[in-house]
Nucleic acid binder design. Structure first.
Lengths: 259, 259
DNA sequence: AGGATCCATCTTGCATCCAATACTCTTTGT
DNA sequence: ACAAAGAGTATTGGATGCAAGATGGATCCT
């Protein structure tokens, strides 16, 4: 294997994000975004090495901003560092996923409750609009677009909570969720359910029933968790094509993971 | 004002944390810890400048690890950056505090519930031991020690949840809470209440009643919030000695903060 | 042959250096 | 006198240089 092929994979993974000409004062942000998106999209896979020098060359910056970017990703839980050896893309074990959805259920519920209490008219309008777009995307079978709209829906809701901490934590949750390899929208029938669950939350917000909004948001997340786990189990058993992307954790199910 | 006095304050603030001889591979961690502790202890106050060069001199490292450390603190919400101008210690507004306790109520409740479900015998023993030590400290009127033991109590509980995300989020909450200038243990009668509230949570854990544990933990946090707000209002009205430490936010109460 | 040790190399960790930007104080023009 | 412009300064942002630690392979010893 020649020197070139060594980071051909990396270059390819970062290619979609190298477009922006990096201006002073935004190098770190540009690198962080590029790497984060590459990881979240799955272009960079768990255990892949993040070599400062290679990344620097590919993005045409020096190692300094790359270093800073990587340490931020570590802080976000997307990468891990071993001293003097380098950083790798963090794994996401089955345990992690379950733990994630447990926390998410609570936080999304809280966000729905707080958002409802604030009587934000624009929130309702925007969630309606996003919902409509999702209906259209569903009719067209546009999975990727559905996933993106879904992200917007949840982002809008958490922003509407008006709570900076909640917003920040849910953003971190989003980073983790987006690392899952497949979209649950691809599961037969799940799209319809998701839309219905969103509607249930929205109806509660409209009715200014904070408790109901919280409850429906929690139900939504519990169902999301079930769908996710089913999806991962499906992917695991019949074909092992996802092996390597996932830490199929030999410990799964052995000890409590907090749910 | 001479050059020296400029960072005499900073040097004094960092003095307690400069003890460790900084070895290779731990410079960033050492600087981060020193700065974080200084901020959390209130030695570095909101809006204080964090000058890379000064900090580097004081801690006998170069600007590089200092920069990395500061960017981590920004990520943690403890500092803010303005481009080409430097970083300052982040303010904590009344709104932030309220928002914080709202989220904390939820997360601590969740931690208590999950911890209870795991039947961790050692957890019960350790919470008992910490509780005993708190009783002694209370009898001795040792406020600082009480506050430290209280941190340990909550840390132990969140670790016992076995949920990495919950643990991480509650750690971030702790960082924010520790920035409050005074301890609510100093409020007459509050110490006794806190001990009783802890006991209530612990009893529920012992009884393996997860719902009760969650409920008592939430109650504990609601009371903590009340005490905190009362404390801040007390500090504000009669004497303004804390002014400057706090962003007494002219907007306080004007708009909803999500609770 | 097998294992331990030493050496070459790769990669990071920190220091230093230079350029760019924002602020401030002065100066100038009206 | 006041405002606007311009120079000077302080401070960061990014690039580069160098040394330390870690890994992997070759070599040597048993």
């Amino acid at each position: 294997m020649s020197d070139e092929t060594v980071y051909n994979g990396l270059a390819a993974a970062l290619a979609p994000y190298t477009g922006d000409p990096i201006s002073r004062g935004r190098a770190v942000a540009a690198v962080t975004t590029a790497l984060r998106e590459a990881i979240l999209d799955g272009a960079l896979r768990p255990d892949d090495w993040l070599r400062e020098d290679d990344i620097a060359s590919i993005l045409s910056v020096s190692r300094t901003p790359v270093r800073t970017a990587i340490s931020q990703l570590v802080e976000e839980g997307l990468a891990r560092k071993t001293t003097n050896q380098g950083a790798t893309v963090a794994r996401l074990s089955m345990e992690d996923i379950i733990a994630l959805y447990v926390v998410r259920e609570n936080l999304e519920g809280l966000a729905a409750r707080l958002a409802t209490a604030r009587h934000d008219v624009r929130l309702i309008e925007e969630l309606e609009r996003i919902g409509d777009e999702m209906e259209q995307a569903a009719a067209a079978g546009a999975i990727t677009e559905l996933a993106n709209l879904n992200l917007r829906w949840h982002r809008r809701l958490r922003e509407a909570s008006g709570n900076v901490y909640l917003d920040r934590f849910l953003a971190q949750v989003e980073y983790a969720v987006r690392r899952m390899p497949t979209s649950t929208f691809a599961r037969p029938g799940r799209t319809k359910e998701i839309l219905a669950e969103h509607d249930a939350v929205l109806s509660a917000i409209r009715a200014r029933d904070a408790a109901a909004a919280e409850n429906h948001a929690q139900i939504h997340m519990r169902n999301a968790r079930s769908a996710r786990l089913a999806d991962l189990l499906d992917a695991r058993s019949p074909s092992e094509e996802h092996l390597g992307t996932w830490d199929h954790g030999k410990d799964v199910g052995r000890r409590s993971v907090g749910y």
